[in-house]
Design a protein around this nucleic acid. Structure first.
Length: 130
DNA sequence: CTTCTCACA
DNA sequence: TGTGAGAA
């Protein structure tokens, strides 16, 4: 399929699909015209790319992880043993980010608790719908 | 329809 | 990381 259909099937903009290719995440073939030709597997690859990006992984790392993940995504190809260490560091980075956010929230909690408890809060934060 | 590049947040 | 404009 060409890029237009990829856009429909993945929901990812055509601009972004070209960007992923530039980053080494996709490798569509080319028609003599220069038009990109994507495979059905590429649709699935894009889905995984989105997940990994959402997890905060940089494209450079995703490019090395993608060819290693088996179809069931529960096992890794043998060649990827060296990547595990890197993924572990990525996990620690996320853990630190969580800790930082929790600290920030605590600061806000303190400030909020110290402030005037006015009724306007009820207006800005209406009763949550059930 | 598709390709590419330049510029920018 | 992701977009917009504009030419081909």
């Amino acid at each position: 399929m060409r890029i237009g259909e990829m856009v429909r099937r993945t929901g990812v903009s055509e601009r972004l699909l070209r960007y992923y290719e530039e980053q080494g995440l996709l490798a569509p073939t080319r028609l003599p015209s220069g038009y990109r030709v994507y495979s059905d597997a590429d649709v699935d690859t894009v889905r995984r790319i989105r997940i990994l990006l959402a997890a905060g992984l940089p494209t450079a790392l995703i490019a090395r992880v993608l060819p290693c993940v088996r179809d069931d995504s529960t096992t890794l190809a043998p060649v990827c043993s060296d990547l595990v260490a890197e993924l572990r560091r990525e996990r620690e980075r996320i853990t630190r980010a969580i800790n930082d956010l929790q600290a920030s929230r605590s600061v806000l909690d303190t400030v909020i608790a110290a402030g005037p408890d006015d009724a306007d809060q009820a207006v800005r934060e209406p009763v949550s719908k059930g």
